[in-house]
């Protein structure tokens, strides 16, 4: 009960303390990048200004820069087709980019499904929907393997038929609107079946980026963890909340950097933390802020302390 009340007001305190912009900065920036990327593709068909052609599966920007989704090419390989150099170059560029800029940053900053599942998660918090069906974290790896097996068995790039990431782009750019039914299904799944179910446990596109994220440079660090007063706001908004605890609690000598490839680097924890614990940095940054003003008498990790503040 307490956690649910807490979740409904996550970020309010940061807003009150640091102003609206600081408490929503990365959320707004993410929405702008998501729309911006789509706009690069839409400017052609809408205004005749051709910047990026294709979809997120494979694209060509300014008729020069090829980009290809890694998992799409993996499926093609599983279906026993060796793609041409253009597609492979595109994968190399994308993989190289996300090896520096955070793996699943694709999920949080580019993917058009993110606003959909974010909306489902937000409605869940506001409506106080129970956590529901809980899936194991390994589910995503098994689903990715099953999808590759389906591609191999049928000899087709099977996931691209129902992949909501590219279905949204195809609907917006090529008018194939029936595909949006899958997107509606994903929204309903996240809203009533499983919390953060699709992006966190099913989508194999995200799984491929999570793999890149295991070694990526850009990371979020809980460098101000000494200031943490256990309000749990970060846990409430984080779509992959299991990634926070090791870095925030620092148990068994864990460093302050959120190391898990599951972290989408969405920066929502940076936004909502009233104590400004989190910050973007690189994965080798081991700096931890000293606890300057001792926080009020330690209340352990129990929620009541947080409730009093609320």
């Amino acid at each position: 009960m307490t956690a649910r009340i807490q979740a409904r007001i996550a970020g309010r305190e940061a807003w009150a303390l640091h102003g609206w912009w600081t408490a929503h900065k990365y959320l707004i920036l993410r929405r702008l990048t998501q729309l911006g990327v789509l706009a690069l593709f839409l400017s052609g068909p809408l205004a005749g200004v051709w910047i990026a052609k294709g979809t997120l599966a494979a694209s060509l920007t300014f008729d020069a820069l090829p980009l290809t989704d890694p998992f799409v090419v993996l499926q093609s390989l599983a279906a026993r087709h060796w793609p041409e150099t253009t597609a492979l170059t595109g994968v190399a560029i994308v993989a190289g980019f996300y090896l520096v800029f955070g793996g699943r940053t694709f999920c949080a900053w580019v993917c058009p499904v993110n606003p959909v599942t974010d909306l489902a998660a937000w409605m869940r918090r506001r409506l106080g929907v129970e956590k529901g069906f809980s899936m194991r974290r390994e589910t995503r790896w098994l689903v990715a393997l099953a999808v590759l097996a389906a591609a191999a068995a049928t000899g087709t790039v099977a996931w691209e038929m129902i992949n909501p990431v590219t279905l949204i782009y195809r609907a917006a750019l090529f008018g194939t609107l029936a595909g949006l039914a899958v997107v509606v299904a994903v929204f309903v799944f996240d809203l009533v079946v499983a919390r953060d179910g699709w992006c966190g446990h099913v989508c194999p596109i995200g799984t491929a980026y999570a793999l890149i994220g295991k070694a990526t440079l850009l990371r979020v660090s809980a460098r101000g963890r000494a200031r943490c007063d256990d309000c749990l706001d970060c846990f409430a908004v984080c779509p992959e909340s299991h990634v926070i605890a090791p870095a925030l609690r620092g148990r068994d000598g864990a460093g302050p950097v959120i190391a898990s490839g599951d972290c989408t680097a969405c920066g929502r924890c940076v936004d909502v933390c009233p104590e400004r614990v989190f910050a973007f940095t690189h994965r080798f940054d081991t700096r931890v802020d000293a606890a300057v003003p001792p926080p009020p008498p330690a209340a352990g990790r129990s929620a009541p302390a947080a409730l009093e503040k609320a």
Binding site: K53, G54, T55, A58, T68, V72, P83, G155, V157
Partner: peptide
């Protein structure tokens, strides 16, 4: 057709 389905990533560049 069978090889086409293993190779086409449905990006729409040919349509463009």
């Amino acid at each position: 057709e069978p090889q086409f389905l293993s190779a086409c990533v449905r990006c729409g560049l040919c349509v463009r």
